[in-house]
Design a protein around this nucleic acid. Structure first.
Lengths: 328, 328
DNA sequence: GTGAAAGCGCTAACAA
DNA sequence: TTGTTAGCGCTTTCAC
C-alpha cells in the first residue's frame, strides 16, 4: 500500500540501510546517492512509518491527555493549549475522555500504556494508595493537573485553597452577612478524587473563620442545587452565593434572573475559573481568574522536561487573581 | 522495560506463539497452558504493544481529528462527541489543531499519515484541485466536516445555504427593513476553504431576494467588524444584524449594550450555531440550531463504516432549525 | 497442542 | 561509502 524504504532501496539499487542514512541525514553516504534517494522518496510520496520507527527507537513522540470531558470551557481551553504546546515540541496528543468514571479512567490509561505514549497528562478522578501504586507500577511519566494525587507526580494547578479563601475574604469585605456555597457533592471524597473541590471548600471555611463569620456557610452540594437554593430565603439577610465554578454561577444567575432577584442588590453572586464566555455575560460575574492555557503549557513543559531529563520536574503553582465584576 | 510476550513465554516455558494464542484466545491451545499463561500475564501486568500489533496486523484503531482550534464552543462540543463515539467503537483519537493555517493543516495530515491512522476526520481549510489530488494520493479514508471539499469524500454538515436563507426569511418576517450581515472575510475564498461561510452568504442573498428586499445587505467582513459597525447609523431604518456565527453575535451584543442600543427594540440581532453558552446570555439570542454532537457521531460512524466496508459511505445532512429568542 | 520462523517497516551496530 | 544483520514486539502460517 504505502511506500517503504525497501521499495525506495530497490528502485535506487541500494540497500535499505543506505536509504535510511539518506532520509535521516545520517553520516556515511555520498551526496550523489543521497540526492538520488531523496528525489525518489519525494516522487513516491514517501512518509516514514512512525510505528516502525518508534518500535526501533523506543519513543513514540506522543502524549496522552486524560480529561473528564470538554464540556466545561476550562477543559477545552486547556486541551487547546496542551495540543498547541505539544505540537510545537513535536509531540502528538492522544485525547481520552473519562466522563468522570473511575473505570473509564483506568481504561484510558491502559490504552495509552498499550500504545506506548511517552507520557501522560492526567486530570485524575481516581485516588488513594491503591491507585497510586497502580500508577507507579505503570512506570510511565505522568503529570497531574488540577486534582493533585501526591508529591510523587508533578502537579500543575493553582492554590485552590488559598484562592477560595481570598474569594470569601473578598465577599466579606463587601459586607455580606451570610454565605451560600454551591459545589459538587463532597461526600464522594472517598470514592473519587475531588481534591480541587475539597481544597476550595477548606479555603472557604478557613476564610470565613478568619473574617469573623460566626455562622457556618450554607453549603449546597446536591445535584439539583437550584431546587435546594429555591428553599432558602435569600433576602432574609444580606446573602452572597459563592460557587465553586463558573458553570454553577451561570446556572444560578439564570435562576436568580428568572425569580426576579436583582444582582447584586438582592443577592450577591461569585464564580470561580473565569471561563472565557464570561465576557458575554451581564451582569459581569465576579470570579477567580487563573490562566488555564498557562496550565496547559506548563503541563506539557513539565512532562517533556521529564521525558528528556528522566527526572520529575516540579512546577510552581499557577497564579490566580480575583476579577471584580458587577455581581457582588 | 515493559513486559513482552517473550518474557511470558520464557517464564511459562512455552514459545511466544503459544502465549499469543492464549492472550488473544486463538484456538489450538490446551486450557491448562492457557490458564497458566493468562495468570502469569496478569501477575506481570502485561499490556500488549499496540505498535507491534498494528505493524503486524496493519491497522492502528486510531482516528485523526483535524480542526482549527477548540476556541469556538462548537468545536469542543464536536471534539467531545468524536472522542466519545470513537472510544465506544474502540478507536483512539489523535487530535491536531491547525489554527486555520493551510500549512499546519498539511503538516497535521502528514503527521497522521506517518502514524498510520486508519482514517481522518477533517475540517478542511485547504481547497482546490491541487489539494484534492494531494488528498487522493494519500490514499486514506477521510470524512470531511463542516467545510465541504467535493463529493469524493463523505461530508458531514448541515445545509448552510438553506439554513441562512431560512434565517433571513425569518428576519424578513419580523418586518426588518435593512439587513447588516457580519461574517469573516470572503475575499480569501481562493486562498482557503470557506465553503461554509460562502454557502451561508449565498443563502442570505437568495433569501433576501426571495423576500422582496430591494436593497442589498450591508456586508461587514472586516476583521475589526465592530469598528465597521460603529460607522453605520443603526437607527436610520429598522435594522437587523445577522451574524454568520454566534461568536460574532455575542461580541456584537456586547457592543450594542455598551452603546445603549436596546435589543431588539432599537436593533435586531441574530446568530448562527446555537453554541451551548447561549443559555446563559440575555436577551436570548435568536439563532440557527443544529446538533453539533450529532455531527461528531455521524462523522465517526461514516468513517468507521468506510473502514469496515472499504467503500465511502454517504451521510444525510444534519437537520437545523431556527431558535426563536428575544433578540429579534 | 505446540514450536519455529517469517514478516510488518524501521534503526543501529558491525562488516566489508 | 555501502551492505548486512539483528532486533523492536507482535501476528500468522506452517510444520511437527
Amino acid at each position: 500500500m504505502s511506500v517503504t524504504i525497501k521499495e525506495i532501496a530497490d528502485i535506487c539499487g541500494v540497500s535499505h540501510g543506505t536509504v535510511d542514512r539518506a532520509l535521516n541525514n545520517r553520516p556515511g553516504i555520498s551526496d550523489k546517492t543521497k540526492e538520488k534517494i531523496l528525489k525518489i522518496a519525494a516522487e513516491l510520496n514517501y512518509y516514514p512509518d512512525f510505528r516502525a520507527r518508534s518500535l526501533a527507537k523506543g519513543t513514540t513522540k506522543t502524549i496522552g491527555l486524560v480529561l473528564f470531558d470538554l464540556y466545561n470551557r476550562s477543559f477545552s481551553q486547556l486541551t487547546n493549549a496542551v495540543e498547541t504546546e505539544s505540537r510545537s515540541k513535536d509531540y502528538l496528543v492522544n485525547l481520552l475522555l473519562t466522563d468522570k468514571c473511575i473505570h473509564s479512567e483506568k481504561e484510558a490509561i491502559e490504552n495509552l500504556i498499550s500504545r506506548k505514549v511517552d507520557g501522560i497528562i492526567l486530570f485524575p478522578i481516581n485516588q488513594g494508595e491503591a491507585f497510586e501504586s497502580y500508577l507507579t507500577n505503570l512506570n510511565i511519566p505522568i503529570v497531574t493537573i488540577c486534582n493533585k494525587l501526591s508529591d510523587k507526580w508533578s502537579f500543575v494547578g493553582i492554590d485552590d485553597r488559598s484562592a477560595m479563601k481570598d474569594a470569601v475574604t473578598y465577599v466579606a469585605g463587601k459586607g455580606y452577612e451570610r454565605v451560600v456555597y454551591i459545589c459538587p457533592p463532597l461526600a464522594y471524597r472517598h470514592q473519587s478524587n475531588i481534591y480541587t473541590q475539597l481544597e476550595r471548600f477548606e479555603g472557604l471555611l478557613a476564610g470565613m473563620q478568619q473574617c469573623g463569620y460566626t455562622e457556618e456557610p450554607v453549603v449546597i452540594t446536591e445535584k439539583d442545587y437550584l431546587r435546594a437554593l429555591s428553599r432558602i430565603d435569600l433576602k432574609a439577610s444580606k446573602t452572597a452565593i459563592l460557587c465553586s465554578c463558573d458553570l454553577y454561577a451561570l446556572e444560578t444567575m439564570n435562576f436568580l434572573k428568572d425569580r426576579n432577584y436583582r444582582i447584586p442588590e438582592d443577592v450577591g453572586l461569585m464564580g470561580f475559573d473565569n471561563i472565557d464566555v464570561l465576557k458575554y455575560i451581564s451582569p459581569k460575574l465576579t470570579t477567580v481568574h487563573y490562566n488555564v492555557e498557562e496550565m496547559g503549557f506548563r503541563a506539557v513543559d513539565a512532562l517533556v522536561r521529564q521525558l528528556e531529563t528522566q527526572t520529575p520536574s516540579s512546577t510552581p503553582l499557577v497564579e490566580y487573581k480575583i476579577i471584580q465584576g458587577e455581581s457582588l
